[in-house]
Design a protein around this nucleic acid. Sequence first.
DNA 1: CTGGATCCGGGAAGATACTG
DNA 2: CAGTATCTTCCCGGATCCAG
Lengths: 228, 228
Amino acid sequence: MLDTFKQELEKVKECWVKSYGQLCSIARALDVVGDRWTLLIVRELLIQGPSRFGEVQRGLPGIATNLLTQRLRDLEANGVVTRESSPGATGVPTYRLTDRGTALDGVLRELLKWGAPTVPDAPRDAIFQMHWLSQPARFLLQDHRPTEPAVVIRFGTLDDGFDLTAARGVVAVQPCKLDASPSASVTGPGPVLVALLQGAMPLALAVANGVRVEGDASALDRILPPTR
Amino acid sequence: MLDTFKQELEKVKECWVKSYGQLCSIARALDVVGDRWTLLIVRELLIQGPSRFGEVQRGLPGIATNLLTQRLRDLEANGVVTRESSPGATGVPTYRLTDRGTALDGVLRELLKWGAPTVPDAPRDAIFQMHWLSQPARFLLQDHRPTEPAVVIRFGTLDDGFDLTAARGVVAVQPCKLDASPSASVTGPGPVLVALLQGAMPLALAVANGVRVEGDASALDRILPPTR
DNA sequence: CTGGATCCGGGAAGATACTG
DNA sequence: CAGTATCTTCCCGGATCCAG
């Protein structure tokens, strides 16, 4: 009898998602994406595109595997991500944002714009991954020479990075493509790159501080903001 | 000796805010406003303006007092709110958003837009407070008759509500003003009002479902979206 | 009575070992 | 590689108590 009671309790707990219980759009949104790590998981899937478990995990240093599992299940249950067994009958799952998940883009953009000023104040030992920069690049940079032919600038490496395309006045980013042939390639320490993209440091100074540019360095001027 | 060690540990923990430790704007923002309740506290201060502890608490049913205290302290430490002893030497604190706090407006707007479609699916026992509707009103409604003289519509009561002003094509909201003389006054059950403002229910049907309009009901047509 | 501080139980987060 | 199982730690939530 105690067992049946415990089972009952388990089933209740299973269905009972922690909710603010408010009839309010903001609270409803936070019911779904307000938990710790959740929006960062969405960030990873938005940047990297459809990803496997381990790929998501690599972009979230410090997350516990069980927690990542749970969050992905919750997001799946809420229609934010789908979990597909990849083709080839290997049965390896791939996680992909649904349209509903992609719609969180605006939320991430506003968080990014709000958080950007505080990035330089981050602790010195904060971890840096190049692909995280793709969103600031997307939202904060512009193509200052819209009439010139398109250029592709690679930030980072195939391992961890992104390709930025400036064309017709628009800046776009995407995961590194093997078949892309970047006009320029940029690597360097995180804090310096952040300062560079935020216009807090001119390119020459950034290079003096460890940023390496290979290829057509002038392509960078096309998208970098004026130094403040 | 053990005591001194414990004291040391306490001091470290005091300064150590839980952080994702990532050099990323989004993660930095979530370091500050990613904790449970935090953004809802900001919502309350944004809607109600400078408020006392109890006023904030009333807008957050279920929050523990100690947690509200802690969150307000954290927000203060992060420059999002200020805590002032109210004039009159009573020493009663008033909490107010700083400019940095007000800048979270965009984040709340995007969360609201993302969460809005799920509000009708909220549990039946979800709590409703009228002033929460002021943000959807602000972000989702428009003034369809910009050339006519301004109107003020009161939603709810002085206790819990807001005044909506439609003028020159712009919709604005503010806490209920004692000296305001609304053209119309609206009250009713939460779910019906939500449907009404989202354009999911025409006004006549809303009235049939418990919405009460006093004064110039035609003023409502001016701002309500077309029924989908 | 408002604005908190303190204490405690339960549950979520975090770390790690283990398995198909 | 993609999780599951397990254990620990710590935060959240509720009640109670205290001060002005």
